[in-house]
Amino acid sequence: MEPMTGLEFLKMVRATPTLKSVPFIMVTAEGKPENVIAAKAAGVSNYIVKPFNAVTLKQKISAVLGAF
């Protein structure tokens, strides 16, 4: 996701006062534990690893919006 990574973008969003409350689901091919840990520490709302299906996407969106 050039020029910045998804994680960099997440941090930028969370650091922006008008955007920090926006639900943020990361959809990525990066599936190592270190990626999940870094994303959660940066404030991601949920994490989907590719390849994914529509059922998973709907579940995650529902969960995130339910908590929003």
Binding site: R14, K20, V36, I37, K40, A41, G43, N46, Y47
Partner: peptide
């Protein structure tokens, strides 16, 4: 696996 790890991690302090 991802969900289990994600749910086990503490929520970031800057997360809404």
């Amino acid at each position: 696996d991802i969900d289990a790890l994600f749910d086990s991690l503490p929520t970031a302090s800057n997360k809404p």
